[in-house]
Structures are given as C-alpha cells and as structure tokens.
Write a protein that binds this DNA or RNA. Structure first.
Lengths: 336, 336
DNA sequence: TTGTAGGCGTTATCAC
DNA sequence: GTGATAACGCCTACAA
C-alpha cells in the first residue's frame, strides 16, 4: 500500500507537506498541492484509516445495535428500511457503520466495550431490550447514543408516533361507523404501552365502550398467535366489527382464521394492521394500516447523532417524534 | 480511555509485559499475568483496535457490498436473511462487518478503495451489478473476495443452486400432471440465465413442449409487472395450467390478476414462486416455492472468505453450491 | 521472565 | 510555504 512517505519521496518534499497538501491546507502553495494530488492519484494512494483514527481520535464509524427480538433477522420491513436509511444517510456524511454486538469471537464483550474497541464515534440503538443492564450501561456511557422508539432520561431518541398512530386508526374506523373495536396488541414493551394507552384514550374521547375481552395480546410479527386471538374474538357472542392487529405480519395469521370461519374482508369483518409494509400494499384488498415513516426515522437518528458528536456541548437532548400516515386501504367497511 | 501504559504504571511493570500478559503469552509468569488481567479489568481497559490494526496490519473487519438493485433496500428476505447470517457467523469468528459503498461523503470512492481505506481483511459481495467495472476492479484486487450468486473466473463464490431449483420445480409440477407450464422469469442476470437454461433443459428431458408465448420476463420483486405478464398468459387461447414466477413477491402481482379473472388457486390454475420467503408460508394456500437456503449461503460465504484470508497460499478458489429445498405448499393442483 | 525501543501511517506543532 | 519531529497506542524483536 502506498503511503504518504512514498509520495513525499517521489516528489522530494516532506511527509508533513504531503499530508497537508492532500487535505488542501492553505499552508501549502497551490502548485505543490497540485503536484501532490496528481502524484497521489498516480500512485493510487489511499489513506489508512487506522493510522488516522489513532492520531485524530475520530473513527468516522457509527455503531448500530440491532438485537433481533422479533425473530425476523433483518427481514422485518420496519427495521430493515430504517437500517437502509441509516446506512445511506451516514454514507452521505462520510461515515461508515458497523454492527455492535455483545460478543466477539469466543469472548463476551459488552456493547459499550465493543463500541469502544472499534472507537465508534457514536451508536444508534435500533432494536434491543432496553431494560437490559448492558444496554443501559451503553446509554449512560461517554459515547453519544441515539435510541429509536425508546426514551432514556435526558438522552436523544427518535420515536415513531405511536400515540398518533392508534388515534388515527380509531378515528378512522369510528368515522366508518365501527363501535365494536377489538385490539390485539403486541407483547409488553414501551411501544406497546403507548399504543394501548392511546387506544383507550381515543375510545374514551369518542365514547366507545371497550369490553375486556376485546383486548388481546399476541407477539409482534407472529401470525400464528394473532390467528389464535382472532379465533377467540370470532367466537365471542358479541363479535367485534373491526379488529386491529399488532402489525401487518401478525394480521396474516388473522386473515387465515377469518377465512376459515367463512368470513370475507371487509364485507363481514373489518381489519387494520400496523407498519404499512410493502406487502400490505400488494395484498388485495389493500390493508388498512398505519405506515410508519421508517426512512425518516433513520435519517433523523443519524442527523441527531452527528449533531451530538459535532457539538457535544450545545446539543440539546430530547426526543424527536416522526409522524406516520394512515393508509386507508380497503379493509375497513363503511357500516353506517 | 485507559491504555496499556496506565496498567503498566499502576503495576510497576513495562508496557510490553502488559501487552503480552493480556494475551496470555507464555513468556509471562502466571502470577504477573494474573495481576495484569485483574488490573486491566479493574481499570476497564479496552484495546484500541486502530492502534492494533496499524501495527498488525489486520483489522478483523470484513466489508460487505450490498447494492440494492431490486428496489427493496435490506427488505428483501433472501438477502436480509443472508446478511443476518453473515453478521452472526463473522461475529462468531471475532470479525465485525461494515458496508462498503462507492461513495464516502461528498466524494466518489471506488469499492476497492473504500475497502482499502478501512483496511478490510476481506470483502463479501452480496448483491451488485457484476458487470460494473468497479466491481470487477474489486474482485481483481489484492483483497480476498467472495461473491454470492455469481462466479468470477478463478475466484470464490457461493451459489444458490438455481439449476436444481428450477429442475425440482418442473419435475414436481410434471408429476402433478402439468404439461402447459408458463415461466415468468426475472430480468437478465447470470442467475436468470441459469434458471432459464435449467427450465428448458428440464422440459426437454420430460418432453414438455414450451410455446414461445409461455415465456415472459418481469422484474424480480416487482408484483405489478408480474401481474401484467400474468394477464397476458391468461388471455392466451391455450392457457397454461401452471405459472412459475420470478420470486414470491412477484407472484403477489400474479395473484391479484388471477383473482380479477375470477380464477381460484389452485383449482383453476396452479402457481409456483421462488425464494420461500416468510410470507409464502403464511399465505393460504401456502405457496409452492423453492426455498433457498440463504442462512447457509451466508455462513459458507464467511467461512470460505476467512479460510482464504488465513491461508492465502493453499486456498483453492472454487464455487460452492448450496442446495435449497422445494416447499410443495398447496398451490399446485394434481390434474391427473 | 521481564524490559527496551523501534516503528506501523498519520497528524500537528514547531522551527526555519 | 515547507520541513523536522513528536506523538497516537500497540506489538514485537531483541536485549538484559
């Protein structure tokens, strides 16, 4: 690999001059700068990031924590879109990204220490168990951190607007005449809590009565469980006219069950998903779903993080909400 | 950040000793090693990978090229599963991974140079335009490279068994009595070529006649186009009894079109997908599809690459085929 | 068994 | 405007 020294020797100048010239320092004359750059290209010079990091104490690497709880690997639309967006936005700013895990080879290495080892300038926590001590350790460390869909006290976070999501859904199905609305929510997380609270609040405002057995729990992204819950709902004496699912994938389990009962969507029963994944728009009927703006969330996460890295002093840490949009689709019938 | 020197001073030994002690060198007495490790933990020592890389000329970072041609970001099941698998397998061996793009900030930087800048020990090309000069440059560089689903002369590659995939599909639908088999294949790539060749070969062997207008092209992962091609097929005087799609997502477009024509699957027409994505198993009827073993492909890619890095001399570069498996599903009717 | 010292490639601070 | 030179933190011969 050709290095600064090679260019310096070829040109009969010093290494320091080459270093400055390559970075267009105004200390160096235009003519010399020009010769340096030309020679660098000629020799195919590429800087050594390790040496540079060592000296400058900046790696231009951002760590990403992505712990897959939802049994979907990177294949969960909401998160994979976000990751793409994070990657692209980082790249735009000259940063690379690397996954931060809590193992390295045989050895256990906490998230913080992994990030420290790679000298990450900052970390984005996309998914993780936010109650895990190691995650908390990372958040409270000296490394700038942005979390997604979870707020730590006095830290930056980007939030998909879960309150508004459910509110919009309820308002929409209400407008379509539904009063018997069942809600299958996901497993217990901060996000789920918000959605449930928001569900009840919206119902209260609209004076919708919610029987206890209209509220069910099923794992996110797990069609089978949602299917079982759907069956329970369909067997109720007072059947709901509309079912809200934890997410679009989970809905697929409900779909099967609904068809088993010989019911048609939306003629016999209305359904609503969450996420607005690619699939939801491909399906017929198009699924009514709240589309989270995961691209924007990723972008915001990057920009907030870089801001924090660049001006650690003046940076104000606060949660940012990113709104989604209701995709009305064709699965909610007007039953007026 | 605490460094070797800090430990050395705290213990009254030399930096060299600490360095060796931490790596359990047999040069160092057990007692001193013990004290060193204890002190290191006490002080929370974490090595600086940049300094280490600089010295050892090994980064333990693998670059991944993932250029999204299929308009799906990381959201394409086949690839996202593979990426998860690559990440996990690398982590198992003490490697991290970073995406290698051909831009960095404002500036254009070729893939090779990006990988060189980060001193990647090797690169896995997951998706890319393999005809692009920059990709070829990367493959022909000094950096160990493994490609997926594309073979460069005398380089390592991992291949999903596209030949066998189509052969198995054809044999299966033949067994079910189908003779009028239409094939909507993807856009022109090496993979597509293989599949087409394999399709014709299997048909020939079974003496199935393939009318020209039974063969159509539609972009991968693009339901709308597959839908249009499906319509054309359904309007033929001599309608096929079975349609093979480029992939499971593309099939979704076909599904809509088939339903528009008032046809039912599989009663009125049989269909086959490709990939065996999560969704294909959730759908009812379960989609007949060839399930590519993307987890295994990712794993193989990592292991082949690491082998090549560790023993560059003795390593034999050759393509590795990874078999998939036919998911029979419920969308191919027995029409005997 | 432990210590010393040079150097990996870069940047930055001084002199000149 | 340019050139020495000293770090950055680590590893590794080689010396003690």
């Amino acid at each position: 690999m050709v290095k600064l020294k090679d260019i310096a020797e070829a040109l009969g100048v010093s290494v320091g001059t080459v270093s400055k010239g390559l970075r267009h320092s105004h200390e160096i004359s235009e003519e010399v700068t020009d010769r340096i750059i030309r020679k660098a290209n000629e020799l195919g010079y590429i800087a050594n990031s390790s040496a540079r990091n060592l000296k400058t104490n900046r790696s231009y690497v951002i760590g990403v924590v992505y712990v897959d709880k939802s049994r979907a690997g990177l294949g969960h639309d909401y998160f994979s879109t976000m990751l793409s967006s994070i990657r692209d936005e980082l790249s735009l700013h000259g940063y690379d990204f690397t996954f931060v895990s809590n193992t390295i080879g045989e050895n256990k290495l906490s998230y913080v220490n992994h990030a420290r080892y790679r000298r990450c300038d900052g970390v984005i926590i996309v998914t993780a168990d936010f109650k895990e001590p190691e995650i908390i350790e990372l958040v409270e460390s000296e490394i700038p951190v942005v979390t997604i869909d979870h707020v730590f006290n006095n830290r930056s976070a980007i939030l998909s607007d879960n309150d508004e999501g459910l509110e919009q859904i309820i308002n929409y199905v209400y407008k379509k005449g539904h009063r018997k609305i069942a809600f299958i929510h996901g497993e217990d997380t901060a996000v789920t809590e918000q959605r449930i609270a928001s569900f009840y609040k919206a119902c209260e405002t609209l004076q919708i009565e919610v029987p206890k057995d209209y509220i069910k729990e099923a794992l996110y992204h797990f069609p089978k469980q949602a299917g079982l819950r759907t069956r329970e709902l369909l067997q109720l004496k007072e059947r709901p006219t509309c079912i809200i699912y934890p997410d679009d994938y989970a809905f697929m389990g409900g779909l099967t069950e609904i068809e088993k009962h010989g019911l048609k969507i939306p003629e016999d029963i209305s359904v609503v998903g969450y996420d607005g994944i690619f699939l939801s728009r491909i399906l017929r009927p198009i699924l009514c779903s709240y589309v989270q703006n995961s691209t924007e969330i990723g972008k915001q996460a990057v920009n907030r993080l870089l801001e924090q890295i660049d001006k650690p002093k003046s940076f104000i840490r606060k949660p940012v909400r990113v709104k989604g949009v209701l995709q009305e689709g064709q699965t909610v019938k007007d039953i007026h």
